[in-house]
Amino acid sequence: MIRPHLRARYVPGVAAGLVVVAALAWAAAEWLSSRPYLDGAEARPPVAALAPVLAAVLVSVTLAGADEELERSTARPWRAIRLAHVLVGTTVSAAALALTGLWEPARYGAYELARNTVAAMGMVTVATALAGAARAWAPVIAYTGAAYLAAPKPVIAGTAWWTWPVQPASAPGAWWAAAAWFAAGLVLYARNGARPTADRDA
């Protein structure tokens, strides 16, 4: 019963994609931290910021069916399913990315990857609920790029509420921001689901 649903939502392809993303994240982090002119593990913020966005964008594909309204007309506890969907999707992608950063978890490694995945998933699910799954990628990509560029360098904890993509694990504000995005996404998406997108694009 669950396998057709997973297939309909492209879960096998997305899972394969996550493996690729994790491999790329590992390779990129390896390359950055081995540059002689950069300072080792500290050189990994680009990976910690971008890999979670890519993972969340991939997972966003699974957040809506081919016909949302048709699906909702069926007798399934969709709220619970959606809740579980986001939780499982986030856990799996955060774990996959965190694995690549375990060798030095606390300096733009596993902790930041996991936190940013949670936050990016939050942004993606909020966008899915408000604008539909097909467009959910745009805000998180634009936001992360802008925050990465605009964040004061060196990073300061005071701006963590919006510079979470580039904050170290030691900044509690970034964890709170991630939690807030995730909670908002979870509530909106579990309650309303993806916005049906008859007007997906024009």
């Binding site: 002119y37 971008l50 964008v57 594909v61 990628w137």
Partner: peptide, 23 residues
């Protein structure tokens, strides 16, 4: 494909970022 745009966008970040590392 639906993912072409976001993946291309993110790949763009990566490539543009990598070029800045080329000194």
């Amino acid at each position: 494909w639906r993912l072409t745009a976001p993946v291309l966008g993110l790949a763009g970040y990566v490539v543009m970022g990598a070029v800045t590392y080329a000194r």
